[in-house]
Amino acid sequence: MHDDVHQETVRSGRFMIVIGLSTVGLVLAIAALVVAAPSGWQEWPPSASDVGVLVVTLALTLAVGVGTALMRIQVRVDQVLEVRVRPLWYRRRIAPTQITSATVVQMTGANSGGWGIRLVPGGTAVLLDGGPGVQVEVAGARSLRFRCNDPEVVVEALRARGASVD
């Protein structure tokens, strides 16, 4: 069919990076306070389960913060349109023949329900920062709106693979 593959990656916007790094800083500050100020524990020392819960909670929160700062959207158009969010496990694959409409849209947090992976009426929106994107209507399924750097190229690649494009 078509040998050329369109592939691109959209990195986290400044807002998502600030949120992620702030979360990491908060975890490190809490850990430093716990290590530096154990004097209050002399009367009632923490149990092993208390320490375990604290360590696991801080580790998970640290992972969320790092993941938020490093988040990216990967868009690939080959035999299918594939939109992935890394390091999360979100992935949506749509055959171009299932696409009834693909249009270029301007995406903001305000018109997409916020930043991240959002359920919007009739579909899903995926964005990490504001900018151009593609709105895809899918036959018999929820629509998908995602942020990308070259929406015109994505729409053209879908058209070349049999998608109905506006």
Rank of each mutant, 00 (worst) to 15 (best):
E43F: 06
R93M: 11
R14P: 15
W89S: 14
V24N: 08
V55L: 07
P46F: 06
L81P: 14
A125K: 06
V104P: 00
G65Q: 06
G130Q: 04
T97H: 11
A125P: 06
V126Y: 05
A125H: 04
I117Q: 05
I19A: 12
G131A: 01
S112C: 12
L70N: 00
G113N: 08
T124V: 10
S22M: 15
L60P: 09
G114I: 08
A37F: 14
R118C: 01
V75K: 03
L119A: 09
T23W: 07
G40A: 09
T61F: 07
V105Y: 05
I17T: 14
G122A: 00
W41P: 05
L128Y: 05
V64A: 11
T100Q: 11
T57K: 10
V35D: 02
V136T: 07
R72K: 13
D129W: 09
Y90R: 04
G114R: 05
V55R: 05
A48D: 14
Q42N: 12
V126S: 04
P87F: 04
A36I: 03
V34C: 07
E43R: 13
N111H: 04
A29C: 10
M71W: 00
G123S: 01
T61C: 10
A69C: 03
T57Q: 12
R76T: 15
V126D: 07
V104Q: 01
W89D: 12
L54D: 08
A95R: 12
L60S: 11
I99C: 11
T108K: 07
L58Y: 07
V105C: 08
L119W: 10
A36Q: 08
V53L: 15
A102E: 08
T23L: 15
V136R: 02
G65I: 01
V24K: 07
W115E: 11
G67D: 03
A37E: 12
T103W: 09
A31L: 13
V64R: 04
L119P: 05
Y90M: 01
P132D: 01
T103N: 14
T108N: 12
G133Y: 02
V18S: 08
G65H: 05
P38Y: 06
V80E: 13
D129T: 14
W41E: 14
R118A: 02
A95W: 09
V136G: 00
G133P: 04
N111E: 03
L54A: 14
G114S: 00
V18G: 00
W89A: 14
G109L: 06
G40Y: 07
V51M: 13
G113F: 03
I73F: 00
P38V: 08
V55M: 02
R76K: 13
G20S: 11
G52I: 08
L33Y: 12
P132V: 02
I30L: 13
V34T: 12
V34Y: 12
R91S: 15
A29T: 13
V75N: 01
E82T: 15
G133H: 01
S49V: 15
G67A: 03
R92L: 09
W89H: 13
V27L: 04
